[in-house]
Design a protein around this nucleic acid. Structure first.
Lengths: 120, 120
DNA sequence: TGCTCATATCAGGCGTCGCTCATATGATAC
DNA sequence: GTATCATATGAGCGACGCCTGATATGAGCA
């Protein structure tokens, strides 16, 4: 597989808010599905669905224990990476808020050149 | 905005293969759109579309120069973060290839418990 | 064996978004 | 002013994937 494609697939997995919530709810522990449901407030089937996706991608692993299945990160290093991006993003957000006096349009990063649509 | 939602949006932006290709084609330089098109092989309008998305999200900035618009990363730190994840991912890929003797089903991370669908 | 609880899976609906075609706009040269 | 080149934008289509409701399966207990 194309390397960049494979890399983008990791990002894509993390790019779904509820899936990211699920991963972060695990932290560095192994937790039963019910704990993930309680922590995220998502439905059981939705959690199960996302956990399957994460499991098949190799980001988490499931370990049966009696009637429970405990899920944890397959590699704790992933959490470190996520936290690094999180730290970077929070810095951007704070920086953007400091520039908050600009209008919402400017906040959307106006096109580099003046441009008007004739039909506009 | 919900912090995790905001974080997932960064990942989502990076989770689109062509958008990631565009970002990586910039590297640490400011480059005209035409260079991005040449480097990625994507159509002009598709590149422009993605650059707009990246620009509005604040990941890149565009600088007009004569008839050209040069784009670069708004924060070079982003490239560092991407490369870190890339390094992590390539380690996983190599590790998975070393375990390549397993069947494709096992490679897909079988469900934690034996499960058969009666209607299967 | 039947019941309860925990979890997984299936199928379908619907919203999101990547890409294309057509076209508009800005900058420069003649 | 016109032509050319570089780039941006609008609109629409089709693919994708999240979520839900229904249901299946496994484990434990009486």
């Amino acid at each position: 597989m194309d390397e960049i494609k494979g890399l983008s697939e990791v990002f894509k997995l993390l790019g779904e808010p509820n899936r990211l919530r699920i991963l972060l709810s695990l932290g560095l522990e192994c937790r039963p599905v019910s704990a993930v449901i309680a922590a995220t407030g998502l439905s059981q089937t939705n959690v199960s669905f996302h956990l399957r996706t994460l499991r098949e991608a190799g980001l988490v692993r499931g370990e049966p224990n009696g009637p429970f299945v405990f899920y944890c990160l397959a590699d704790p290093e992933l959490l470190t990476l996520i936290e690094q991006v999180r730290h970077w993003q929070s810095g951007r957000v704070e920086s953007a808020e400091e520039n908050g006096a600009t209008s919402s349009r400017a906040g959307r990063s106006a096109a580099p050149r003046r441009r008007q649509r004739a039909s506009g």
